[in-house]
Nucleic acid binder design. Structure first.
Lengths: 256, 256
DNA sequence: CGCGATTTGTGCACATCTTCACAAGCGCCT
DNA sequence: AGGCGCTTGTGAAGATGTGCACAAATCGCG
């Protein structure tokens, strides 16, 4: 809305002509479907039913069909979905047809691991540059990339268009880094620092906090322990209903 | 629904006696509140208003009040919440009053980083043991812990109670590791491997997939690019509604 | 002691997400 | 060609989550 700084090639997009206005919950699951589809393709499947794909992705088949229906009708009744076609469609919707460049800021413990993680490259992301604020770390080479000072960010961003920034710094430094990323036109940030970031409108921030995930697990452990410790609470008729443990984006009890 | 807590249990002032049956969305936010509260306590605040805490945690104040109301009434109208009391309450609900032991399986690139991550210890989790299947890695010492073969898991689990297992192995090995963890009684698993795990009922699995987060960001980038590239679509009535960019668990546009 | 300023806790309406159940469509077999 | 079994796509209902707006409660002050 305010700043449209398009990187270079506007061109006409050969892919999806409409803006499908997907539900966020669906968007969050599409990458999982994509991974499952790639695995199926690898295994030689040409088509897959909603049941089969849902199984591979760890979701309900009805949910999967509804999700896919939002992209259009790319299945064949009585047969299933064409694996290759569906892969193309989902990649197109997710914008993975072009390789996106990622800037990683903070090459500490976690940053190191992220820089070496090959799961990024294998899914269409290229780590374009590594930055750190610590002068002692500058010049270090990780996975073929040389760590640069974070002040170099504007220069690097001018050379190649960075579409996503990853923050793997300590929490106190994260806000300043976010500001710098925004300043060079980055509108998508993946934040591993345990803190809240303030960004202007139009910039997306996704947060991954490893300790939070553990604490959520801890809650469920705590609750399960309490349940087993209370054999007969005086209350209601239903005691331990088996299906009641499922969590929101937690897979549970997918029996063999 | 309304569970009233009798304060009249003399001498029985331990941790929460009731099972509050919290909404999952609330549980997922409690750790964030906890982090914000610790920061406030560090800064010397004794009390905080819902507005202030909501701001520090990056959420709506109404949502925060509703979340906290599920734990009981621990605020004072006209004043706010007692920071120290609220910390105790949330930690109690999350089961963080006892230090939980974590077993980490897979000390590759990511596992190394996790083993060295101090954000775990600072929030009540202790990495109790490191495992790997690769014989070449066994014996390596990371952060004061020696990497053991994953087959040692039963022995170690017998010595100290492991409540949570973290899987940081390559995807093909993850299911086998999960099975081994379940076999020794682990009922909470944090999975970093990009695959779906099958576990028996009663075992919680939370998944963190770094590439998926990037792909979700990619979608939003793609969509924003499409929006700016299409000034006037001839078709439907609604074109670009400005408030439609917010994502589910994505913070966006928290203005100054 | 009462009053106003302030803030919590919550009922209610709205939005989003999930799940069920079934009609419509497709291919295969006879 | 026609019927039959299978699978998709979707309307509707239910579940869950969100946000507004306001009554109830508390403190400080005159």
């Amino acid at each position: 809305m305010s700043q449209h700084r398009h990187p270079g090639a506007p061109g006409r997009t050969g892919a999806v002509p409409t803006l499908p206005d997907l539900p966020e919950a669906t968007v969050a699951r599409l990458p999982e479907y994509l991974r499952a589809l790639h695995a199926l393709a690898q295994a030689g499947h040409e088509t897959v039913s909603s049941e089969g794909l849902a199984n591979a992705a760890g979701v309900n088949s009805a949910k999967l069909r509804k999700d896919l229906s939002h992209l259009g009708s790319y299945g064949t009744r009585g047969v299933g979905y064409d694996v290759a076609l569906l892969i193309d469609q989902i990649e197109s919707v997710l914008g993975l047809t072009q390789c996106r460049s990622v800037a990683l800021v903070g090459v500490g413990n976690l940053g190191h691991a992220l820089a070496g993680y090959d799961g990024f490259a294998s899914r269409g992301f290229r780590i374009a540059a590594l930055f750190d604020a610590d002068r002692a770390r500058i010049g270090e080479e990780i996975n073929g990339l040389v760590v640069q000072h974070v002040d170099e960010l504007p220069r690097v961003a001018a050379e190649e268009s960075i579409s996503i920034g990853v923050i793997a710094t300590p929490a106190p430094a994260a806000q300043a880094v976010a500001d710098q990323l925004v300043a060079v036109g980055v509108t998508g940030i993946l934040n591993f620092a345990p803190c809240v970031l303030s960004v202007p409108e139009g910039v997306d921030v996704r947060k991954v906090d490893l300790a939070i995930e553990l604490q959520i697990l801890s809650f469920h452990e705590h609750r399960k322990a309490s349940l087993t410790a209370l054999p007969a609470t005086g209350g209601s008729g239903l005691t331990a209903l088996p299906g009641g443990l499922a969590a929101t984006d937690t897979q549970e009890a997918i029996g063999t």
